[in-house]
Computed example of a mutant assay.
Amino acid sequence: MKAYIDSSFITNPMGEYLKWLKCKTIYQLKYWGNHLRIGYLSKVSNTTFGRYNTLGTQCIVTNCTLGDFSYINSFSYVLNTKMGRYCSVGPNVKIAPGKHPTSVFVSTHPVTFNNQANLIKNYCTESKFNNNQPVTIGNDVWVGANSIIIDGVVIGNGAIIAANSLVVHDVGPYEIVGGNPARFIKKRFDDEQIKYLQRTEWWNKSEEWIEANISKFWNIENFVEPTLATV
Score class of each variant (00 low, 15 high):
Ala3Cys: 01
Tyr4Cys: 02
Ser8Lys: 05
Ile10Arg: 05
Tyr27Ile: 13
Gln28Leu: 05
Lys30Thr: 15
Tyr31Cys: 15
Tyr31Ala: 14
Gly33Met: 15
His35Met: 10
Arg37Leu: 07
Gly39Lys: 12
Leu41Cys: 03
Thr48Arg: 12
Gly50Lys: 01
Tyr52Glu: 01
Gly56Thr: 10
Thr57Trp: 07
Ile60Tyr: 11
Val61Lys: 01
Thr62Ile: 11
Thr65Asp: 08
Thr65Tyr: 12
Thr65Phe: 13
Gly67Met: 03
Gly67Ala: 04
Asp68Leu: 13
Ser70Lys: 11
Asn73Phe: 04
Phe75Val: 06
Ser76Cys: 13
Tyr77Gly: 03
Tyr77Glu: 10
Thr81Asn: 01
Arg85Tyr: 10
Tyr86Asn: 01
Cys87Phe: 10
Val89Ala: 00
Val93Arg: 02
Lys94Gln: 12
Pro97Tyr: 04
Gly98Pro: 02
Ser107Asp: 01
Thr108Tyr: 10
Val111Met: 07
Thr112Trp: 13
Ala117Ser: 11
Thr125Lys: 14
Gln133Arg: 14
Gln133Pro: 01
Val135Ile: 09
Ile137Ser: 02
Asp140Ser: 12
Val141Asp: 04
Trp142Glu: 00
Ala145Gln: 15
Ile148Val: 15
Val153Arg: 07
Val153Pro: 08
Asn157Val: 09
Gly158His: 04
Ala162Lys: 08
Val167Leu: 13
Val168Phe: 04
Val171Tyr: 05
Val171Met: 05
Ile176Tyr: 13
Val177Asp: 03
Arg183Pro: 00
Phe184Val: 12
Phe189Asp: 02
Tyr196Glu: 02
Gln198Met: 15
Glu208Thr: 12
Ser215Val: 05
Lys216Pro: 00
Trp218Ile: 03
Trp218Arg: 09
Glu221Ala: 06
Glu225Thr: 14
